[in-house]
């Protein structure tokens, strides 16, 4: 009576669907994070405030938090302490955090970070040209880049990155294969 053939087909179809979904789907983003159609991240080759070179291409295999900021931007000042707290929690788990200052000098960056996020080292986009290539909506601007170098998410303005919702969201990305 029971149609075993039909049941088998349904089971196989369900398993395949679940496998495909598990591979392709990324977690639902919290409020203020835009899910984008993935695209290759623009190049970043810059030096940090201590003169150390950085190349985004060398971060393949890691999720990367790319953040653009400037000392004169009010929301950047508000957001930076939250990023520092997030840094402490998520970098040990494998998130690469890349902070890029837009078009300011060493002294300005040094003074700003000394006040708002003393443990953070920032890259210097001296002429603002790298920032331009990423086409942010405004400053601050944050992007999440996957292990293959594709941009998947963009944050709208400043976000409370040390809030559980955002931490758990990024943790869930880090756990994706």
């Amino acid at each position: 009576m029971f149609n075993y053939k039909k049941l088998l087909l349904i089971t196989i179809f369900s398993c395949v669907s679940l496998m495909v979904m598990a591979q392709d789907s990324l977690p639902v983003a919290p409020y203020g994070i835009l899910k984008l159609t993935p695209y290759p991240a623009p190049k970043i080759q810059l030096h940090d405030i201590d003169g150390k070179a950085f190349n985004l291409d060398e971060t393949k295999g890691q999720w990367v938090f790319v953040h653009f900021w400037a000392s004169w931007c009010g929301p950047c000042r508000k957001e930076m302490p939250a990023i520092q707290k997030m840094w402490g929690e998520l970098e040990p788990l494998g998130l690469k955090i890349v902070l890029i200052n837009t078009a300011e000098d060493e002294d300005t960056i040094f003074n700003f970070l000394g006040i708002y996020a003393p443990d953070i080292r920032a890259l210097m986009d001296r002429n603002g040209q790298i920032t331009e290539q990423w086409k942010p909506r405004g400053l601050p601007a944050t992007y999440l880049v996957d292990k293959e170098g594709l941009v998947h998410y963009q944050a709208l303005g400043g976000r409370p990155w040390n809030n559980e919702i955002y931490l758990n969201f990024i943790k869930s990305l880090l756990h994706k294969k």
Partner: peptide
């Protein structure tokens, strides 16, 4: 200088958004 042009641009309202 380009750096000052860049900072100036970031203080302007986006043309489209």
């Amino acid at each position: 200088p380009l750096a000052h042009q860049s900072t100036f641009r970031w203080t302007l309202l986006p043309e489209e958004l």
